[in-house]
Design a protein around this nucleic acid. Structure first.
Length: 877
RNA sequence: GGGGAUGUAGCUCAGCUGGUAGAGCACUUGGUUCGCAAUCAAGGGGUCGCGGGUUCGAAUCCCGUCUUCUCCA
């Protein structure tokens, strides 16, 4: 319940809407947040800034659709100079997931308007106290040849007294996207949220950019006016852009007059909920406060990541999500005393709070809950195992006073046991963890990995300047004339290859699950094989082992048509499968992953139980029925996304779509899709599911084949059945196999009994032939039994007192020897010694336990001598 | 992608340097009666992930491969 006093402040939802409304009123086009999970950019796993979705515009690979844009962007940061996952929650202002409010100008307005808008929004719309605001301006950099940003300074002078306009160096006030590329000076707006008393003591201007949690940067206005080229030199850009970013949570804190982001209504409802469940109060104890913040923050991050299609896993981006989730579980486990899964129970509360603004989490709530629950269960299990392992270690090594770094690292590295938990457990036992040793192990691990993953990428060699994406002709053409726009050399693991960008291409770049095309780049003089095609942002990259001798020549790019056709068949079949699954299982089926290759297809989708055989058959039949109807491909290029949605086209969560989309339709199966498809479903021929299984909680995977490959599966099965029938000599396989099974069991039983009998008879015979050697009852015999029977007999015979048993046999042309000694003679004779000595005579070796040992060899003729040798040895002792 | 671990009875796992595959729970049958995981006895159940190799002998050692987990990138 909100206190009356607080109703004076805008809620976070109102603040977000006010921001978007304001910029809309200034001619900005409002775009939705891009997914937090990034595909098609190997340099980035998650959206970490508002500008990510516009990167291609800044890089000049793409043209903007609108010159003024604003949005609120979901972002995730887990590493970087100011963002270490381990720090989140310990202080009151770091987050993993946050929203970045931003407005952009692509070659439209520049410094004046950017500054005017930001000032007006903060002071007039948000009504923040002007006296608490500071602006920073770039001071210039001699080495770069850049000068003081007089322009920005002049504009700020119209808003602020000069003593509250500060200058900053290259580190704070010059923004660069990477080593090279567009960049420029930036102007930051800082706000001083301290009490008046504090402000009177120290002026705010002394605390700007000094890591004070209450004197913070609230908005960064970047003025992109340069392009940094590989030599480090700056060149003026023809089109100047504005890129701004304002931390939504910080803005809420300022507007709502709080001392921490976590005190705003963005976090408080969920924090209160967690506190209630944990039976603690927020604000009472540092330890539990940190844990509450960690859980609240991480819950948001994980929920949104899963909604955007990134499930926790053990590699790449999925691993980052798992780490975040596990960190929250572990804080809950240790400091909030949650010994049972709890995170998943909080999802509905978060959805309740944010589901209106972000419908993706509302729609996928069930899946999110299930996945988090499963992760919680499995992690609590690894915690339990780690604790057991730790206790075992302490029982053995507790007296040493410290926990060895090697052990702590092993626990962490192999068993996933968090190091801080190890430290906690250790301190409870009065032990100290050797962190130096632990860090050494971690360091070595990192170096190993880096060395293995080292990729050296050379600069692009630009042959033709082109600021539009490669024109893709592959929907219609299998080959086309082309020029190389640019290329670069890449070295990884001592292998070099080349990445080539063309002006236009028929090659489909790996995306949307469909594999990249292969083919050749050729002209009359030369021919280069393209072995893969991938996408990096908007660049279509052709991979080749070598470069043409004359890269500037005109080429013909030809794809491997057969492979493409099979891939297209599989891609179309995937759409039919998706459609059939929704019909058979329900509309909760959402695509969670897809892989379309020439020889097979794989489709991951949300569904909560194993598909029954009937459901699988029903799905197959439905797909095959659509194939037989030979539905023609209906392709709509550049259809407005709203129209596509009305048509009922299936879109993917976590996929970024423009305003104009490509729609692929086969009958009732309609999907937004960029892939290549077959002209009519009849080309697919035949569809067959080859496996169905689980990939994660609530996610199933189907693997299937089509056309030739499917035909082959059927033929292979037919062939198998035929040969089985031949082997059985019967057409009624079920009956014949049942009989075989029954017979087999009966025979096994009989053999067992027979062997038992054999051993018993054998023993009886042998008992009759006991000899006395040196006061010891000796049984020795050479027979034709298997080693197993020999051993069983010896085992029985040694039960009596004062006995040594020596048995030999030739079985399958190999000599075997068993020596057994009765318990009371164990001090006097050792079976292994005896058997080894005898083994030499049959050209073999042996050993075993003191009471019973075996040997085998290669010389059957030596067997009598071997037995005699044992008797000699007995006689000598 | 690299490192480490893991795979043994329906389930949870043990099996030390190679020597007759085990425990607990579950199951079957029988006995007992102390009413909600009762107890006693007997019993069934295992291609030791898969494929090679070394060895007289491999669950155990070596090589390859797959599964799952885990850390790093």
């Amino acid at each position: 319940m909100r206190l009356l006093k607080n109703t004076m402040y805008m809620t976070s939802n109102e603040i977000r809407i006010a921001f978007l409304k304001y910029f809309e009123s200034k001619g900005h086009h409002i775009v939705p947040s891009a997914p937090m999970v990034i595909k098609n950019d190997p340099t980035l796993m998650f959206t970490n800034a508002g500008m990510n979705q516009f990167k291609d515009i800044f890089l000049g690979n793409n043209q903007p659709e609108f010159s003024r844009v604003a949005d609120s962007q979901k972002c995730l940061r887990v590493s970087g100079k100011h963002n270490d996952l381990e720090e989140v929650g310990r202080d009151t202002y770091h987050h993993t997931m946050f929203e970045m409010l931003g407005n952009w100008s692509f070659g439209d307005y520049f410094k004046k308007e950017a500054i005017d808008y930001s000032w007006e929004f903060l002071t007039e719309v948000m009504k923040l106290d002007k006296n608490r605001l500071y602006a920073t301006v770039f001071q210039g950099d001699e080495k770069d040849g850049t000068s003081f940003d007089q322009e920005a300074y002049e504009f700020w002078k119209t808003k602020l007294p000069e003593e509250r306009i500060l200058t900053g160096n290259k580190k704070d006030n010059f923004w660069e996207m990477g080593e090279t590329g567009p960049c420029g000076p930036c102007s930051e707006i800082h706000i001083d949220l301290r009490d008046d008393e504090e402000r009177a003591k120290t002026p705010g201007r002394d605390l700007v950019n000094k890591d004070n949690p209450l004197v913070i940067e609230i908005w960064n206005l970047v003025f992109m006016q340069y392009n940094r080229i590989a030599s480090g030199e700056l060149k003026l850009l023809a089109n100047k852009h504005v890129d701004t970013g304002m931390g939504f949570e910080r803005l809420c804190m300022a507007v709502q007059n709080k001392k921490s982001n976590y005190d705003t209504d963005v976090f408080q409802p969920i924090i209160q909920k967690i506190a209630h469940k944990a039976n603690v109060k927020y604000g009472e104890k540092t330890e539990t406060d940190v844990a509450l913040r960690v859980v609240a923050d991480h819950l948001r991050a994980v929920t949104f990541a899963i909604a955007d299609g990134q499930l926790p896993s053990n590699t790449g981006a999925g691993y980052v999500i798992r780490r975040i989730l596990r960190r929250a579980i572990r804080y809950g486990f240790t400091f909030l005393d949650f010994k049972e899964p709890f995170m998943h129970t909080l999802v509905p509360d978060l959805v309740n709070q944010m589901g209106h603004q972000f419908p993706e989490i509302l729609k996928q709530q069930d899946l999110i809950v299930r996945i988090i629950l499963e992760e919680e269960q499995s992690f609590l299990k690894t915690l339990a195992k780690g604790i057991a392992r730790f206790d075992e270690y302490v029982a053995k090594n507790g007296s040493k006073g410290s926990v060895e770094g090697d052990f702590a690292f092993e626990l962490f590295d192999t068993y996933g046991f968090p190091i801080d938990l190890t430290q906690l457990l250790a301190s409870e036992k009065g032990l100290v963890v050797d962190m130096e040793g632990f860090n050494l192990g971690l360091q070595q691990q990192k170096e190993r990995s880096r060395a293995a993953a080292a990729v050296a990428t050379d600069d692009w060699v630009e042959l033709i300047h082109q600021d539009t994406p490669t024109k893709f002709l592959g929907y219609k053409e299998n080959e086309c004339e082309c020029h190389i726009v640019k290329y670069r050399k890449v070295t990884a693991k001592n292998k070099t290859f080349y990445q080539i960008v063309l002006d236009q291409t028929p090659f489909y770049a790996e995306s949307g699950g469909q594999v990249g095309d292969t083919g050749v780049l050729e002209n009359v003089n030369e021919k280069v094989a393209i072995y893969n095609t991938t996408k990096e942002n908007n660049l279509t990259i052709h991979h080749a082992a070598t470069m043409p001798d004359n890269p500037s020549a005109v080429f013909t790019a030809c794809i491997d048509v057969a492979k493409r056709q099979m891939t297209a068949n599989n891609h179309s079949a995937t759409h039919l499968l998706d459609h059939a699954l929704r019909a058979v299982l329900g509309t909760h089926v959402e695509q969670k992953g897809s892989m379309v290759a020439a020889d097979r297809l794989r489709f991951d989708f949300s569904h909560f139980s194993k598909m029954t055989d009937e459901e699988i058959v029903k799905t197959e039949k439905m797909v095959n029925e659509m194939i037989r109807r030979n539905l023609p491909l209906q392709e709509y290029v550049d259809m407005p996304i709203e129209e596509a949605r009305e048509k009922g086209a299936i879109a993917l969560f976590g996929e970024k779509y423009g305003n104009l989309v490509r729609v692929i339709q086969f009958g009732d199966a309609i999907e937004l899709c960029g892939g290549t498809h077959t002209s009519a479903t009849g080309n697919i021929g035949f569809f067959k599911i080859v496996s169905e299984g689980a990939v994660a909680a609530g996610v199933r995977r189907i693997e299937a084949v089509t056309g030739n490959a499917a035909e082959e599966v059927v033929y292979a099965q037919q062939e198998q059945i035929k040969s089985i029938k031949e082997l059985l000599g019967s057409n009624n396989m079920e009956q014949a196999i049942q009989k075989l099974n029954d017979d087999n069991a009966a025979y096994r039983k009989k053999i067992e009994e027979f062997e038992k009998q054999q051993v018993a008879n054998f023993c009886k015979d042998l008992e009759a032939g006991i000899k006395d050697v040196n006061g010891v009852q000796v049984i020795s015999k050479i027979a034709g039994f298997s080693p197993d029977i020999l051993r069983a007999a010896a085992f029985q015979l040694r039960a009596a007192a004062n006995r040594v048993v020596v048995l030999g046999s030739v079985f399958e042309n190999k000599p075997n020897l068993v020596v057994a000694v009765s318990d009371d003679l164990l001090g006097r004779f050792e079976a292994p010694k005896l058997v080894r000595a005898a083994g030499k005579l049959i050209q073999g070796g042996g050993g075993g336990q003191p009471s019973l040992s075996t040997a085998g060899g290669k010389n059957p003729a030596g067997l009598p001598d071997a037995v005699a040798e044992v008797l000699n040895l007995i006689a000598e002792n």
